[in-house]
Design a protein around this nucleic acid. Structure first.
Lengths: 211, 211
DNA sequence: GACAAATTCAAATTTAAATTTAAAAATACG
DNA sequence: CGTATTTTTAAATTTAAATTTGAATTTGTC
């Protein structure tokens, strides 16, 4: 069983490379040859360890999920809804901006959003649902009881899609738009902006409902 | 030259089919065979009329642009910035929701966003730039002179990305989220929501800058 | 160190799609 | 009509990528 050690290295190098390449190119455009070059193995390694490109993809998705999605720090018991929303937005923006080493899941998430392969629908639900419920709970606290489910759903869309913004922009487009590199400082300022913008938005809806 | 008549039919059937299929599948996943089946021609028609799949793509892009992007009604001279923003958001949401017959450009826009082919960068800039400047002008009017370029850029991102929301959701995801079909009524309510949310957001930034 | 199992490799095969070809059919025009 | 041009067709070719193969190598175990 000790040969597992060396073997595991190879298998896991392929898996790491797969996360990176699938995240960068999406399922179709990712080449097994590229993945294996990246991993420093022969192309046959993919089929040897995973059987096919498709099942490598689902494995990579799972691994990226497990490694990348560190649970958000639990809310402090005495956090206000405003603080909870802010924390959530900052976490989302940071996550969505992280196209680098740690952020493979995020890239894969986007690629799957844009070109659904349908290969990972099950893991998808499991993953998204609890986080969605958490955000909706926070919005509900902020928006008050006069709001309808539709109001809450719309606010959720507004917030999530603002955070997703940078996901959709490639480096060139980004430079074209902002004229500055994506530094941690910029990311923080963007998250602050979205928080402020969204709190005002939610508050306006609340006020409108109660008038 | 009268043979052009019949010929044009064939060429233009291919172009129409290309808009539809490229819009549905994106560049890579679209099959020339599918496009030609749709158009009722032989596969060779693509290379006969357009030379290659790539140049069919750029032609289709141009045609979808010309047919699909009806210029927004010019702003009434006496429209307030609030009214202009509202009109712009309603136009964007309506456009982005139109996945049907008239909305091929929208679909191609999304596919290009998600998987840039780089084939249409030039047309892209031409198309987006004037509309961008218009929106930025409106935001500038609303946000006041204390705001920085970065503030304005952030607000632009917030607004555009809220409008893009429905672009990213396929029918199944949508039903899962809202539990209702995408009726014109829903689209209007969503645009109203985004307008209200965004005006409040911009106003909050303005207030914050001036304090 | 020798044998068995696991792994890696380069090369062969398969598959799917775009592209080209050359012959047939349709059309235009004198 | 007859011939020249354009268009369409089915089939052949090319290309790019995934997958399979079987031999060579490495590793683990006795």
């Amino acid at each position: 069983m000790a040969q597992m050690r060396r073997a595991k290295k190879s298998r896991s190098r392929v898996l790491d490379a797969a996360c990176k390449i699938f995240g960068k190119k999406g399922y179709r455009d990712a080449r097994i040859a590229d993945i294996c070059r990246q991993a420093g193995t022969n192309v046959a390694a993919v089929n040897y360890y995973f059987g096919s490109k498709a099942s490598l993809y689902t494995e990579a998705w799972k691994q990226a999920f497990e490694k990348d999605i560190i649970p958000d720090p639990p809310d402090a018991v005495d956090a206000t809804p405003e603080e909870r929303l802010s924390a959530r937005i900052h976490a989302l923006v940071r996550k969505f901006c992280d196209h680098g080493a740690g952020g493979q899941f995020t890239r894969m998430y986007l690629m799957e959003l844009a070109n659904p392969t349908g290969l990972i629908d099950d893991s998808w639900r499991e993953l998204i649902e609890p986080r969605r419920r958490h955000l909706i709970g926070t919005i509900r606290d902020l928006i008050g009881s006069a709001a309808t489910d539709e109001d809450i759903w719309f606010c959720e869309l507004s917030i999530i899609n603002q955070c997703r913004a940078l996901l959709m922009l490639n480096r060139r487009d980004l430079e074209y738009l902002v004229q500055q590199p994506l530094t941690p400082g910029l990311i923080k300022r963007l998250a602050d902006h979205i928080t402020q913008f969204s709190l005002a938005g939610i508050h306006a809806i609340r006020t409108n409902k109660n008038k």
